[in-house]
Simulated scan of single mutants.
Amino acid sequence: MLQKYDQFKQLHHDKEALILYNCWDVATALALEESGASAIATSSYALAQAWGFPDGQKMTFTEFYWFISRIASHITKPFTVDIEAGYAVELKQLEANMMQLFTLDIVGVNFEDQDLSTEVPQLWTIAEQSARIQTIK
């Protein structure tokens, strides 16, 4: 994990801009890797749509984890994941979900700044989002 993390971190300091290409399944991840991508990312929308779900955490975390684990187990490049809102409202559940995801050798995440569990998503307060960031760290 540390080797991929260090590699990903270095990509942020190279003279060339870091371009993250998004995959949505194993086939697209492998195609990106074979095309020379230096790192692989996911798109929550593309991933959800590829598996028959609308975007916005409409699949379960168990389903999401399985899809991500399939991709992670087939690629060798650093892998960063769009985790939507972490599939959790409560910090303890967010922490548990992150602990599971980081067993997959991913090097980073990007995530929403809003609560997707409500009918009309609402932005987290600064204090709430700060606590969520700290939990993921």
Rank of each mutant, 00 (worst) to 15 (best):
T103D: 12
Y65E: 09
L104I: 13
I75N: 00
S117N: 10
K77G: 04
F79C: 01
L104T: 13
A88N: 12
A72C: 11
F67S: 00
D82H: 08
F64C: 06
H74V: 08
D115T: 03
F111V: 00
V81Y: 00
I68C: 11
L104V: 14
A72D: 12
F111H: 05
F79Y: 09
E90F: 09
P78K: 01
Y87P: 05
A88S: 15
T103E: 14
Y65S: 12
L116K: 14
T60S: 15
N97I: 10
T103S: 14
F79H: 05
L91P: 00
M59F: 11
L91T: 02
V89W: 01
L101F: 07
V89L: 04
V109E: 04
S73N: 15
F64V: 03
G108R: 06
F67I: 06
W66M: 13
T76Y: 09
L116W: 07
E119L: 12
I68K: 09
Y65D: 08
I83Y: 02
A85P: 07
E119G: 10
L104Y: 10
Q114P: 07
V107G: 00
F102N: 04
D113S: 08
H74S: 15
E84V: 03
D82C: 04
M98D: 04
G108M: 04
Q93C: 09
F111C: 06
A72Q: 12
A96K: 13
D82F: 00
F61R: 10
G86F: 04
P78S: 03
T118H: 07
A96P: 01
I83L: 07
T80I: 15
T62F: 02
P78R: 09
A96G: 11
D82A: 01
E63I: 01
V107C: 12
I71H: 05
F102M: 05
V109M: 01
F64I: 04
W66F: 14
D113C: 09
I71C: 00
S117E: 00
F79E: 05
R70N: 12
E112F: 07
N97R: 10
I68D: 02
V81A: 04
I71L: 08
I68E: 06
T118R: 04
S69D: 12
R70A: 13
I68N: 08
A85V: 08
E90S: 11
T62W: 00
Q100G: 01
T62E: 15
A72V: 13
K77P: 02
Q100I: 10
F79M: 08
T62K: 15
A88P: 10
F67D: 02
H74K: 15
A85M: 12
T103M: 12
A72E: 10
E119P: 07
I106N: 01
K77M: 05
L101D: 07
V107K: 03
E84F: 01
T60V: 11
L104H: 12
V89S: 04
A85H: 13
F102Y: 07
A96M: 11
F102V: 08
E63Q: 15
F102P: 02
F111M: 08
M59W: 04
N97V: 10
A72K: 12
F64E: 03
H74G: 11
K92A: 15
D82P: 06
L91F: 02
W66C: 14
A96V: 01
L91S: 08
T103N: 13
I75W: 02
V107D: 03
T80D: 03
D115N: 08
T118G: 03
K77Q: 05
K77W: 03
E63D: 14
